[in-house]
Design a protein around this nucleic acid. Structure first.
Lengths: 213, 213
DNA sequence: AGACCGCACACCTCCGTATGATTCCCAACC
DNA sequence: GGTTGGGAATCATACGGAGGTGTGCGGTCT
């Protein structure tokens, strides 16, 4: 049996990552977030943020649209392209409507114009952290599923697909050119490797794997 | 056997509903949309739109934020409260960022500042119609499922829940204080009424009913 | 040597359905 | 008002089909 690496969810405390080229803004936000007990990491540029040690810590990102070198919206797309799902709260001093709409369409959680009320920022960050936690819980579950699915042999995967599609063992055998007995063996292996205690559970797992690409 | 009303999806042509108090804007948009072969219905106020004959036709809504009497964003919330899922494309002459962010958060498909390029509006409306069609297909499927589920007796529903949770007939019987035979009969009725040809299909139906409230 | 893949026999459990019957309740009908 | 009919719910017996597992065997490929 292949080893199944347990996720070891240490449930790290969330970190609010601030990226703004203005040191005064960074400090103001830093003290604002610390005042409500949040952990903060501040960066002067997108590159600094990307170079940080704890690259995939939970939390959220508070991002100025105008950054040195990179546009904040382009940076958002860049993060999405590298599968960084950290929720983003934008802020801007000289923004316009198309900019905010583009950010929101791309999945930003909020878009605040400077100057903004402290409470608005805290609300946005609070929501962002919540969404991040929910996203991580889901990603963990899907990740465990994918690891289990990856441990299946090609034949076992085929059998799993047909079984979770509702076919009987003999029908699967007919489709794959196998005897029913062999299908049963593969099916048993699938149930064991996927840690499914019932067909219903296996169907749900197959559904989750199919809908979360 | 209870009758199962078939959806009779007549696949009506989509209609772009324009709501703007400025007749000139309405006419300009009307000819723009007609030029690409879309059906259009124009209204001067939110009330006029709500009073229209074909209240739930497929399509989308092109909405000015500043409307006579009602705020466009409030109207959006009002539509959502009355379960109208028509995708909304906002336009505005005097909008600001908080306004656009609020609209996008509430599910608006786009938010265009006047003057906008014709192509931007056509792109937004095209996307909105597409999303509406997808939403309707899904709503139709869920609706059919719910009708079937509603035709189940209370006992049959209980049995369905436990069966789709992965329990064996005898376990269901133990939980509900029934003999295994009785559970089998209810289970057979569930499969017939839900038109499920396999347990896998029934599990997917239960999943769809649970996740789409 | 260890995986993956394949098959057969045997045995047990579980599922599905048909037949038949009983009870309760509610509504329609005379 | 009583009768009748039907749906819902319950259970029993019985049978055939489908699922699950163990034992044993053999092949291929790395």
């Amino acid at each position: 049996m292949t080893r199944m690496p347990l996720p070891l969810t240490t449930a790290q405390a969330p970190v609010v990552c601030i990226v703004d080229d203005d040191a005064a803004v960074r400090e103001a936000l830093d003290s604002l977030f610390r005042s409500v007990g949040l952990n903060v990491a501040a960066f002067g540029s997108a590159a600094d943020f990307l170079a940080r040690e704890n690259a995939n810590a939970p939390g959220c990102l508070v991002l100025d649209v105008r950054l040195p070198g990179v546009n904040g919206l382009d940076f958002q797309a860049q993060l999405a392209a590298m599968d960084n799902r950290l929720p983003i709260v934008f802020m801007t001093g000289h923004g316009d409507i198309p900019m905010s709409v583009r950010a929101m369409k791309a999945g930003a959680l909020d878009f605040l114009s400077k100057p903004f009320r402290d409470q608005d920022m805290l609300d946005a960050v609070s929501m962002a952290i919540e969404r991040d936690a929910a996203g991580r819980r889901e990603a963990d579950a899907i990740g465990a599923l994918r690891r289990a699915y990856a441990s299946l042999t090609p034949r076992e995967r085929e059998v799993m697909h047909h079984v979770t599609a509702g076919l009987m063992n003999k029908q699967v055998g007919g489709l794959l050119g196998l005897s029913e007995i062999t299908v049963k063996i593969h099916r048993g292996n699938v149930m064991r490797k996927m840690a499914a205690r019932s067909l219903a559970e296996l169907v749900r797992q197959a559904e989750a794997l199919a809908t979360h690409p």
